[in-house]
Design a protein around this nucleic acid. Structure first.
Length: 413
RNA sequence: GCUAGGUUCGCAUAGUGGCAAUUGCUCGUGGCUGUAGACCACGCGUCCGAAAAGACUACGGGGGUUCGAGUCCCUCACCUAGCA
């Protein structure tokens, strides 16, 4: 009856880091694994062939976006997400719960973003520039129609044309069944990291209730559903939520926005002990390099993140310690920096991706400056391939009980 | 040769006598964590500063009027267009 199985191959001796295999009818996913984000059934700038070539095993698309365009019926008619986008591997859809809050309000006259959730899943309370941005957006409030939350679901307005839509657990699951990914996500509510205990608790209660409703709306047993852990930065809420999710779901995701990296790591620490070892654990939206090490060390298996593709489009390339990458520079560098103009080296010395094998920093820098579409494509390729390789190498390190050694090598600087 | 219009920080543009001077591009540096952005932010005469503040030099050249000129006047140079 269960189309998916997950087994642990090995747990690192010194840490909770683990290597496993998630088996699905459309292929195996070797964990830890990075899940590239293809929101609109497209990993921006990359073809499925590229993704396969670099070792990607699973892709994430978004229900919210696919519902608005082209519509889940179109995807269903084209035999489901994987077939629609010609992806031969495993697929996953996010429920759209996050997006309903992050973009769920009508387009205002200026077209500027205005919702405080829009910016990021990772909100740093020390980041005053972010708070200023939020403040600046307030003057748009006169012509904003924000999403309306009630106990049964959310009414929101399309970011594309302002049209009115309604999501609730049943609708979100029905849509995900039509879209037809191998892995789907329960419809969850999303708390703000700025909220206090009481409102966070109320939000968590909704997430839990919606989780159960998602399960009872679920008819396609060939798909496996993740439940989402919430509870903000409150220990008892996170723990209850972790227990609840583990009790009811076959797969577990941790969701939320975090006020700092420390909070994020603490949240993972609180939750993981409540998860059954034989269930896959996905940390939603998180996969910057230091976070990968920290979360894998704590026992998380799967990670999706927009950063590699977005940074790629913006000219920010991942680099390893061999090329000067460290926590302080987020293991990245801007390829348009003047110092790369005459640089004949590949983007990164450690990376063995197609881009690093074939092109110089000088050339790629030129492509970005000349605004050539190829630059964004190569940059995105490198970034995604970089993370895929890194996680693969981490996996190998786990299998050899060398996780700590590898982490030290990357993160000590 | 005559007439008209021009000459502003790399390029292109604003600019009522109070101006280190607008905007776009280029350029420089940051930022991006379940994707509304091929995006956003900041900087961009020189020197000194952590910053605020200073100092100096600047709107084709030279001269003039004025407390004060990119802005007004004279003159020279160059550019463009029209007429010869």
């Amino acid at each position: 009856m269960n189309s998916l199985s997950f087994s642990i191959e090995h747990t690192d001796k010194a840490t909770h880091a683990r290597a496993g295999v998630l088996r699905t009818p459309h292929g195996d996913v070797h964990t830890p694994m990075f899940v590239p984000v293809g929101t609109q059934a497209s990993v921006k700038a990359l073809t499925p062939h590229d993704l396969q070539q670099m070792g990607t095993e699973i892709l994430l698309a978004n229900t919210y976006h696919l519902h608005l365009r082209p519509g889940e019926d179109v995807v269903a008619k084209m035999k489901g997400l994987a077939s629609f986008m010609s992806w031969p591997g495993v697929t996953m859809t996010d429920s759209g719960g996050f997006q309903v809050f992050s973009l769920g309000s009508a387009q205002n006259t200026t077209g500027k973003k205005h919702n405080k959730f829009t910016n990021s899943v990772f909100i740093n309370e020390d980041n005053t520039s972010f708070m200023q941005k939020v403040a600046k957006q307030e003057h748009f409030s006169s012509h904003i129609k924000p999403a309306k939350l009630d106990e049964n679901g959310v009414t929101f307005f399309s970011h594309i044309d302002g049209s009115k839509h309604r999501f609730n657990p049943k609708i979100a699951i029905t849509m995900q069944e039509k879209i037809g990914a191998d892995l789907i996500v329960a419809f969850d509510d999303h708390e703000s990291p700025l909220w206090h205990y009481e409102e966070t608790k109320r939000s968590l209660d909704r997430t839990n209730r919606w989780g159960l409703e998602s399960l009872s709306a679920h008819t396609r047993k060939d798909q496996v559903m993740y439940g989402v852990v919430h509870g903000g930065m409150f220990e008892d809420l996170r723990k209850t939520s972790a227990q609840f999710t583990d009790k009811h779901f076959q797969a577990i995701a941790i969701g939320g926005s975090y006020s700092s990296k420390e909070t994020l790591y603490r949240v993972v620490d609180w939750c993981v002990p409540y998860f059954a070892p034989e269930k896959p654990r996905h940390l939603l939206g998180i996969a910057e390099i230091p976070d990968l090490f920290e979360a894998i060390e704590r026992g998380m298996d799967l990670f999706d993140c927009v950063a590699p593709t977005r940074r790629g489009r913006h000219g920010n390339m991942y680099i390893s310690p061999e090329s000067g990458g460290n926590k302080k520079n987020s293991f990245s560098t801007s390829i348009t920096n003047a110092k790369y103009t005459y640089d004949p080296k590949p983007i990164d010395a450690w990376c063995r991706c197609y881009v690093c094998k074939n092109y110089t920093r000088s050339y790629i820098s030129h492509l970005y400056r000349a605004d050539e579409i190829l630059g964004k494509r190569l940059g995105t390729y490198h970034n995604v391939a970089f993370i895929i390789q890194l996680v693969k190498e981490i996996r190998n390190a786990i299998l050899e009980d060398q996780f700590s050694v590898m982490k030290e090598k990357w993160c000590v600087s």
